[in-house]
């Protein structure tokens, strides 16, 4: 039996790697992929708790997270395509119309 804290640390590490990726990369597609990594870290935590507390609610939450991730990927990639069509760049430094 693996202690639950190992799973929580793994979830935290995956979340941190995703967060650092979001903050350090300039390519919008890679930023989207790093957000998927963060969602996966959260899912690991939810499912670890579901198993340890013997409550399937955590697994149901994880499947809703996966649903939201699918919707987010579809809308995000559509935004990226229309952005590339208008500005012909994916560099988030150059997409700064709303920046103060």
């Amino acid at each position: 039996m693996v202690p639950i804290t190992y799973y929580l640390w793994l979830g935290a590490i995956l979340f941190m790697i995703g967060a650092v990726g979001v903050l350090t990369r300039r390519n919008a597609i890679i930023i989207l992929m790093c957000i998927e990594l963060m969602l996966n870290g959260v899912n690991v935590t939810l499912i670890a708790f579901a198993q340890r507390l013997a409550d399937l609610g955590g697994q149901v939450f994880a499947i809703f997270v996966i649903t939201v991730a699918a919707g987010e990927a579809a809308v995000g990639l559509a935004i990226i395509i229309s952005l590339f069509r208008n500005r012909s760049t994916l560099n988030v430094d150059e997409i700064n119309l709303l920046k103060w």
């Binding site: 903050l23 350090t24 990369r25 890679i30």
Partner: peptide, 18 residues
């Protein structure tokens, strides 16, 4: 360059989050 110019700050803040 694939890296944002704020990467050292982000690399510092990541372990803090962890």
């Amino acid at each position: 360059n694939p890296w944002h110019r704020q990467w050292p700050l982000a690399l510092l803040l990541g372990p803090f989050l962890l």
